[in-house]
Write a protein that binds this DNA or RNA. Structure first.
Length: 539
RNA sequence: GGCGCUAUCGUCUAGGGGUUAGGACGUGAGAUUCUCAAUCUUAAAACCCGGGUUCGAUUCCCGGUAGCGCUACCA
């Protein structure tokens, strides 16, 4: 944190500056997280959200809203931004065009910038020529020497013109918290355009067009008093172009921190093509925000010692250190995210996991639409408490919440015929001792007293074999059929669940019986019903 | 093409002029359990290549290679 200390006089101010052109991606989310961590770990630190929507064609308001929601879900909040305002607003670039124009005029008046009247065609042929001669394809400065009065006259006459910044004649250097000192020769920068020429319908007062990104970021960062620019490393090559703007403005250059790219398993830049990489998709699949935050922090950062991996957001705020961030790109590993998610799923308060799991079951059609509602009728409360036990039983089996309904198939999708036909069960069902076990077991279950309970669901019987009673039955089968161990348990398990593997009987049997007593969209079959159905297929 | 950035187990990483190169995910094995999941134990697994500097380089320097980024009146 030493790098933050020296700016103690003025508090740390960082910003996250996304373009609302799509869903929030893991790469951007990590950038947002690192910014947030730096702001929160520094006394008086301020986290600014700035929406870079100058690309009118691709920017959409709904993406901005989505973005903020995704960030909030992760626990990342802002002190200043379009929603909360602040003294350095407005925070949407589309609302700041007048500011950019003013500064451009100032730069022009001071001779730091000049008007360029070159046509697109001319520029393009310059570029081709430069490429052919293997030179850097930068602007050759054709309009640099036009006298200001002459330029002003041509502009007033309505001749289309762009504004270019005069690049200084010295190497451009800046400090990067993750990469150290970075230096570029000025020749590679060139006199870049900072304000486009006016396009029909996009004209600003004074006949200028929409300003260029590399210029507006600097104006914004200067005006918003940003002390640390933390962003993706796709901006390192842009940085010298921006540093030149700071110099022209006579403003101090902030600290930079360029975060490495997140790659997919094929070592390509992570994109939609690589499946679910948007923050929304992680939320939808039932990844906990604390797992995602923890994982993202570990991508490119490790604490001193490098052995600790589990960090809450609060712990990250305490431990995180920008200068320990690695400059090398990292491959996104879904398995490790899942590992963290499994960890946090076990840690999480049961009620929370149940609430989060519920929609998946409603969607699967296993639970009624209103099951999530707070208004708890008596039945609803019963369903909920049963469901809570189901979730608790199944959570150790999943990486993420959306896998839960599939794991719950043993409750809702019992199918004896399919179980008997399943090749996975062939060995168990084909064992010599199987028949004896099954016959004895069927008889025992049938002999159980049936307790009719029509209070919950008229016309249904609730047998209510307890876990203890079930254990006794198994012991009786063991004694009478003379079979023990796997040969005893596997066939019985197959009858009960359709599979020879699954949760402990102690927990499973009561859930089966209690579930059967409930009125659900997909009826859970009781122990006795399962026995009847199974014996019908395999007598 | 030019410029820049990067390079430790399959993956995320720690470390650093002399180390048995550490941890984690994943994988294999074992324990536990009727079984699966969970849990515990355990094993295999890495310093990109070539030159320097040095008594000694994985570590420092240079070059190569590879990957990525930027090369716009995109952001």
């Amino acid at each position: 944190m030493s790098h933050l200390q020296k700016t103690e006089s003025s508090p740390v101010r960082v910003r996250f500056a996304p373009s609302p052109t799509g869903h929030l991606h893991v790469g951007n989310a990590r950038t947002a997280l690192f910014n947030w961590l730096v702001a929160r770990q520094s006394p008086g630190g301020v986290n600014v959200l700035r929406v870079e929507d100058t690309d009118m064609e691709r920017s959409e308001a709904r993406f901005e809203a989505q973005l903020v929601e995704d960030l909030r879900w992760m626990g990342i909040d802002f002190d200043e931004g379009p929603e909360q305002g602040g003294e350095y607003g407005p925070y949407r670039q589309s609302d700041r065009l007048e500011v950019y124009r003013e500064y451009a005029e100032r730069l022009l008046a001071e001779g730091k910038a000049y008007l360029c009247f070159c046509s697109d065609e001319l520029l393009e042929s310059d570029r081709q020529a430069a490429m052919a001669e293997q030179r850097q394809p930068v602007y050759i400065g054709r309009c640099r020497a036009i006298a200001p009065q002459e330029a002003a006259r041509r502009r007033a006459a309505g001749e289309p013109c762009a504004v270019r910044l005069r690049v200084p004649n010295h190497p451009i250097r800046f400090h990067d918290l993750v990469r150290g000192e970075v230096e570029f020769p000025s020749e590679i920068v060139g006199d870049n355009v900072i304000v486009r020429s006016a396009k029909p319908g996009e004209s600003l007062p004074g006949g200028l067009g929409i300003p260029i990104y590399n210029y507006v970021v600097v104006i914004d960062d200067v005006l918003m008093k940003i002390t640390h620019v933390i962003r993706g490393d796709d901006h390192v090559s842009n940085t010298p172009k921006q540093v030149v703007v700071y110099e022209a403005l006579g403003m101090p250059v902030p600290e930079f921190a360029h975060l490495s790219t997140i790659l997919s398993a094929d070592r390509e830049r992570l994109s939609k093509r690589h499946g679910a990489t948007s923050i929304a998709s992680f939320r939808e699949m039932g990844v906990l925000p604390e797992a995602l935050v923890n994982y993202l922090a570990l991508l490119g950062w490790a604490p001193t010692g490098g052995t600790r991996e589990i960090f809450s957001a609060a712990e990250l705020v305490k431990e995180f250190d920008l200068s320990r961030v690695t400059p090398s790109p990292a491959v996104f590993d879904m398995e490790k995210l899942y590992w963290l998610n499994r960890h946090y799923l076990k840690q999480a308060a049961p009620e929370r996991v149940v609430a989060l799991a519920l929609p998946y079951f409603v969607q699967a059609g296993y639970l009624p639409q209103g099951a999530g509602e707070e208004v708890s009728t008596e039945t609803n409360a019963e369903v909920r408490s049963w469901f809570a036990r189901v979730v608790a039983l199944l959570v150790p089996y999943v990486d993420k919440l959306d896998q839960l309904p599939e794991k719950a198939a043993l409750f809702f999708r019992y199918d004896a015929a399919a179980a008997v036909a399943n090749p996975d069960n062939a060995e168990v069902l084909g064992a010599a001792s199987c028949s004896a076990v099954l016959q004895t077991f069927y008889a025992k279950v049938r002999a159980e007293k049936t307790e009719v309970d029509t209070s919950v669901l008229p016309g249904r019987t609730h047998h209510g074999i307890s876990a203890e009673r079930f254990k006794e039955i198994i012991n009786e089968v063991k004694a009478e059929a003379g079979v023990k161990g796997k040969e005893l348990f596997h066939p019985i398990r197959t009858v009960m669940t359709g599979s020879h593997s699954g949760p402990d009987f102690d927990k499973l049997i009561p859930l089966l019986e209690d579930g059967a007593a409930l009125s659900l969209p997909v009826q859970v079959k009781s122990v006795r019903e399962r026995v009847e159905e199974f014996s019908g297929v395999k007598g």
